[in-house]
Design a binder for these strands. Sequence first.
DNA 1: CTGAAAGCGCTAACAT
DNA 2: ATGTTAGCGCTTTCAG
Lengths: 340, 340
Amino acid sequence: MPAQRPRGVSIQDVARAAGVSRQTVSNAINAPHKLRADTLERVTALIEEMGYRPDQSARSLRSGTRRVIAYTTPETDPDNPNALMSGFLEAMVAAAGEAGYRILLVRPRPGQSKARALEDVIAARTADAILLSDVLEDDPCVDYLHETGFPFAVFGRTRPGMPQAWVDVDSAQAMIDMVGLLTSHGHRRVAYLGTSAALPWLRHREAGFRIGMRRFGLVGHEAFVDGLDEVMAVTRDLLNRSPRPTALVLDDDWLAPGAYAAAQAEGLTVGVDLAVTGFNDMPYTRLLQPALTTVRLPLRRIADALVSRLLQSVEEGTPPEAGLLLAGDPVLRASMTTVA
Amino acid sequence: MPAQRPRGVSIQDVARAAGVSRQTVSNAINAPHKLRADTLERVTALIEEMGYRPDQSARSLRSGTRRVIAYTTPETDPDNPNALMSGFLEAMVAAAGEAGYRILLVRPRPGQSKARALEDVIAARTADAILLSDVLEDDPCVDYLHETGFPFAVFGRTRPGMPQAWVDVDSAQAMIDMVGLLTSHGHRRVAYLGTSAALPWLRHREAGFRIGMRRFGLVGHEAFVDGLDEVMAVTRDLLNRSPRPTALVLDDDWLAPGAYAAAQAEGLTVGVDLAVTGFNDMPYTRLLQPALTTVRLPLRRIADALVSRLLQSVEEGTPPEAGLLLAGDPVLRASMTTVA
DNA sequence: CTGAAAGCGCTAACAT
DNA sequence: ATGTTAGCGCTTTCAG
């Protein structure tokens, strides 16, 4: 039996102390312009002095708004932990916080589907809006949220026919830009090392690479790995194809340490004989020797856009009409080389 | 003016449909044993069918319990992002979820102190308990929470005189074990590369290293870096002291890429001529070539212990009497070497 | 085992 | 500009 925590100071207490009605105290907080300056000052001082804060539950019950965004954290694959999550969450907490919202982490109970967990959140009125990330093309959560009409937004993309309440990185364009960057450093023979998982963002990167190669008239091969164990062998093979590449484009920073080792095994020095580029700008890319040239995701701008879309849905009831594609920034570091 | 979201099905609706009182529906959810089997079944089926979930705000208002743990996310230093956070949070979300609680991320507003943010959480009754991490010796938040008597727990340690509501890794013992592991692999000359920041957990690791060295009768030097730029130079210097070390112990995985490069610059091959060990088992340590031997933190056990302490405080009103030190697990990987 | 009554703390709507 | 009234949806208390 949970011991009932002693309740603190209520709006009634403040009202009595100030000699006004409860409503006036409420107004001092929610609609200060409705009070005379002197009353406002007196009440505000008392609120501060007594440490009064409106009870969140009572307020939510009455007003129907919770000031909470639920985020269904993707299950972390222990073999490829989404280190990105910490940066994205960080940005979301900051962006939501500035708008007066907090992030509630929601995880489906064991055996429960993600959609079912969302149903709980909606039915129990736990949050005002829902944030999704790492969604696949046909994610049932998106369909479900679409049906209910509950405010939501997605970091990623949703397919046509679904609400376009999404924000994503223009991965293809970022890859094109990366190929352009290599071109401007004199590279002509560029290899691509990708991950074979069928994730949409990986396919966007691959498509961007191909477009870039064609546009800039470069030549090269592509190879894909299924697990990190394969990285060494596949990379070495790739480096030995002809024409021998002067640059190696990775579809994810995770491949970098293995690629570096493979280059070394081939007698190449990254940053001197071979350029290597990554994607994501994971924290550790700056630590690698040489530091990795990669694509930084504009996490804070993504978070701001997501929050603004979420709040638009909540406050105006109308979901955004189109998705938003934000540019990734190539970050030039020592793993880049210049070819004469 | 936030559009008021249409309210869903209430307990009243279910009660009417089932031909029972609201109380009976409430009992079906909160105290099923109080109902006759057939009534329970009928009501439960209706609850499921109508998609009824108790309104969280109403329930919280009435019962005084929120089923939420507030976690004040430490500000992430962009120069040394706490990649650990994602793993810890992951564990906390899972552990809390199994106990029926969710994690609410609370960040102080700009210009607001952390203690003040906690005051808001407590006064507004936003959460049942508060979780802190990355606390320093004299963190004012701990003093504040101590004063208020609000249930809280700390990942880290609090000083004597404060409630011992903490769980931490026994960093010193883990370092002793690591030195033991090196000893059992034949190492006698071991160097230590640490970070000079005055963080308690770093000092515990350092102390453990010294104890281990003395206990196992090893010899070696220590050196400290202030920023990641210094890693290369300081490590090279350390590797050149006499007696020349056969193993290098790092106080954090972050130092590993730089240390590897320094070793290579000295003509040493990690995993062959030189053993290197880290601390934390960050995700990328498995990717390094060779994979890093390091100390894995028992994040899930830490999270379980924190949740159980938190809930004890909430439900029984009595904070834990002593802190809990959990062993870290040395993880043997290819960066270890055997000395004849 | 089930039902009726009361009220948690707050704010919207209306009255003054 | 301030006060009054009513009720959000639920669970606790007490009666049957």
